[in-house]
Structures are given as C-alpha cells and as structure tokens.
Design a protein around this nucleic acid. Sequence first.
RNA 1: UGGGCCGUCGACUAAUGGUAGGUCAAGUGCCUUUGGAGCACUUUGUCUAGGUUCGAAUCCUAGCGGCCCAGCCA
Length: 567
Amino acid sequence: MSAAPEPRPSNFLRDIIAEDVESNKHGGRVQTRFPPEPNGYLHIGHAKAICLDFGLADEFGGHTNLRFDDTNPEREDLEYVESIKNDVNWLGFKWDGLYYASDYFGQLYEWAIELIKAGKAYVDDLTAEEVPKYRGSLTEPGKNSPYRNRSVEENLNLFERMRAGEFPDGSRVLRAKIDMSSPNLNMRDPVMYRILHAEHHRTGNTWPIYPMYDFAHGQSDSLEKVTHSMCSLEFADHQPLYNWFIEQLGIFPSRQIEFDRLSLTYTMMSKRKLRQLVEEGRVNGWDDPRMPTLSGMRRRGYTPEAIRNFVKAAGVSRTNGIVELAMLEHFVREDLNKNALRVMAVLRPLKIVIDNYPENQVEEMDAVNNPEDPSAGTRKVPFSRVLYIEQDDFREEPPKGYFRLSPGREVRLRYGYFITAKSVVKNDDGEVVEVHCTYDPTTRGGNAPDGRKVKSTIHWVSAAHAIDAEVRVYETLFSKENPDEVDEGGDFTENLNPLSLEVIANAKLEPSLAKAPVGGRYQFERLGYFCVDPDSVDQDSKPGKRVFNRTVALKDTWAKVEKKQKS
RNA sequence: UGGGCCGUCGACUAAUGGUAGGUCAAGUGCCUUUGGAGCACUUUGUCUAGGUUCGAAUCCUAGCGGCCCAGCCA
C-alpha cells in the first residue's frame, strides 16, 4: 500500500520554519511564544495566534512559551492573566515556559545602561506634547531633540535618577538614538522607557520606570531563545527596530515574522471596544455568550476542537481578509453533530391533546441518543395523552410547501405515533391554544403497518413529564457585517443588534435533561445545539429548572424556503 | 501626497515558471423516523495595461485599489 501523497507545506509560516529546520539554523531548534498583554480577555483572533504559535512549534518538535507582555501596569490585571492561562488550556495547548516581560525588568534596565554607555541612548526632557512635534510627519522628517547630545555621564546620571524615582511621571523619557529623518517613524529615536509611578500587578512599586513594548519584546524573545517570533501585520514596521536592539546588544537573534489577523463578519475584535461593551453593560460580562471572547464562546457551547478546526481552515497569509461567520458556525455544527446527544425540547409550547389516547396511560418510547454514533445508545422518553409541540409546527392554514401539522394532516411524532389534527381551541384573541388530534395505535415507534408515509416528523414532550427551562437564543451581537461601519460622527455601538438576545422563559424539556450538567452540550432535535448555562446552578428555589444557551441553530431549509417565498 | 505590506471564485485559502485546486457560502438532485446529517452534481476567480518566456497567478515595469504607521499603548 502506498502512502498518501505528501501534503505540501501549506502556508508561508510553515515554509519559513521548515526551511530553517532544513538548513539547521539554530541547530534545527524551533522555539515560539504566545505573548498576550494581560489587559483583557482572549478572543477568537487570539485563537489564531495561539494555534499558530503552539501548532507550528509542535509540528517541528519545538517548544512554546506563554509570556505575558506586562510592560504597562496601568491597564493590566491579575484577573486577566488568570483568564488567559485558563483559555489557552481550554483551547487545548500546554506551554513549556511561563514567563512575564516583568521578569526581565532588571536585565532590560542593564541593557539600557549599556546602550547609554555606547552613546546609543539618551534621556530626553521634551514634554509629551513636544515629542510628536519633533518627530515630524508621515511626509516630513523629524528634527533632533535639543537634549539629544547630552554626555554619557549626564545621561547615566539622569537615567539612574529616573530609576530612583526622583522625577514625576512624564517629565523625561529614555530614547534610542537612531535617525530622526528615517522614513520609518518607529526609527525616529523611539522611546525606550517612560516614568510611571504605578503599581505593577507583579513587581509592585519596585519600578518607577517601565520599558516600552519595543524595548521589551525583542529582548524578551531573545532571552527565551525564541527562533520564530510570530506576530500580526501591524508590527511589520517595528521589525527594523526589533532587529536594531538585538544587533546593538549583540544578543540571540530572534526573528520576527508577521501574519494577518483574523477578522470575522458581524464581529468586533478590538479589545478596547470589547472592554467598552463590558463596562457600559451592553453585554453581561466578558463571558457573555454573544462575545467573541474564548470565555464567551465556551459559555455559548463552542468546542475547542471546533475553534481549532476553524482556525486551521481559515488559514494564514498576509492579506487583510474578513472570514464569514458562517464558516466558524460550520465547524461548530460539524463537531457538535458528531458529539452532541440528541434530546427533544419545545421552545414555544403548543398544547396537543390526543383524544383517542387512554387518559392515564404513559408509554416509554425508545429514542436514539446520537444517530451519528451508535455507541451513544438509546433512552426512554415518556409519551402520554397531552403533549407539547412547537408552535411553528402547526398552522391552521398551511402555506404552500408546509409539511407539518395542520387540520386534517397526518404527521409523525418522533419516536411516537402518527397523529392527525382534528380541531383547534382558540383564545379570545383568536390564537390557537390547543389542538385536538387522534392517533393511530398501529404506528407505535413511527411506522405504519400499511406502509403509508407522512411528509413530516415533529418533536414533542409529554406535558405531565416535561421540565421547565429558560432558553437564551442568540443572534449576532452586531447587525452589520462590519460593526465599525458607521455614518459620520457615529459610533460602533449604533450597530449593536437589538435582537441579539432573546430569553424564552417557559420552554419545556424532556425529563432526561433534569440531570444535565452545567456545560453539557445537546442537540435539541430540529432546533439546534444548546448547552447548559452556569446560571442553572442558582435555581435551587425551583428544583429541576435549567438555563440553556443556544450555541447555533441547525441549518433550516424550510426557513430558507419561507424567506424566499416572502421576497 | 513619505515608508511598509497586500491584491486568485461571493468569503477564506492552495498552486514556489508547466492541468487554476480545496473549504465555507449559494444552487440542483438523491436519500432520510430531525425540512438535521449524509451523498452526487453545478455555478462563479488570477485587479488593469504592457514586457520577459516555448510557456506567467507566479518574474519585470507602470498604473489602479486596499490595509498599517506620526502613544511617554501593545
């Protein structure tokens, strides 16, 4: 038997790494890192970086560190580092080393002094307002700061006093002496250190000065002997600076490689704006199931496997594309279809009375737990005279192409009997509140001995045995493909979808769900995938009451047909 | 109008000078005790104009279009 054709390395990152391994660069060693700033929760965009950093290293027998880029104490918090660790683990990855940029503050400080001594860095007294003026513009070169040519001794003295905490915030900075006329703004004497009398979540008050990203990231990579430092495209302009510090310091030459961020339709990926949604109460926290955060998706019922498959399928390049949300949902359905247990649940109950079914009889019907997985077995579902079906599954006047229950029409109750609608009971508003049916006792289990067919099978629950549940049905958080697309002077919050959350308070579930664990994922037959929300544990006052989140709806061909008929 | 990066089906992504392929979406049919799933089939693409070459999505030139950069954020 011949082996399957060798799959070609399928993206440019893998090609670069494969080439380096091939040429025995760094002895064939591969070391990567995932470097989040702990200033928010991880989102699906980070999942791409995580899959790349960990996945590629793993493919080449390499290692991956988790490193917190905690150089700005004002926005960072321990809550975020804990959530990040949790999310990386949940996604299915294990880091080799766990580091913090703040671990390197001492070393970074020494390196800054080294650069000062070499005449490559200087203390600048320009104010925060003056610095940008001296920097020039996109089209005009900058000009040197009047403090640029201070002596090494003066710079050393000033920098040591900065470190000692003698100066107020913002009064001075340490800058690299490079080239104020460089076409790359990042090379116009970039700031290396700023004065910040702020308490750091790990180093406390030991440092009144903090290194900037550019003076911390490359060196941190270098200290960890990172061979391939992958980051997103907007850092491409920083690469010359990344290399400059490494070269001036003569340290391990980590290499930065940029790739495109993941963008999704109907999804906001800016951490700043996500934080705004949380702080303004537009959503119920970072883990609101409508959020694109990993914690939100976890709560929504997305699986790590589905997210990984999606990220892999979406691929990586250097273009600025937007992936359709439908693609993510496809991989969520694909995974859940294989693994989620099937159950029957009625979201909007309509009472059905089977007039010719014995009053006090209860039958236990056999139901398949997962048609995709015979090993999942079967379960018993109670059947009785009074049932609930979905309101959508009955129409007094059925439109063309409608196969479900309507007066005189016979349909199959899943795992039950064939029933025929006979009459309806209406309320004062003329709404159908009860449907009276008859059943054919010879069709138990769903087959007619005479071989007659029905066009539709609908789900149901026994009214006497059903348990109550609250079901939260989600739509996209934003009603525009691009949430940032707003009119002049507008704000992205205008694009928030007012229908993104619908709470159904009185859904009816088959009794087996009474013991569904928090986080448990199910397919409600014909409706979609749902999972048990953590809020269910607060239901002590109402034993058996559950809260479910709709993860994603099933593909609905009838809905599509109906929509088309309307238009 | 400085510099950097990038333009392949509706979306994402392969093809590394030699058959433009895959996934999602869309559509058609089959099947079905979920109008689910599955199976089969179909539609649509190399930004434009030149050039090099036996041969160009790929290399060159010019244009056009998009994204990023002027934080003491990352």
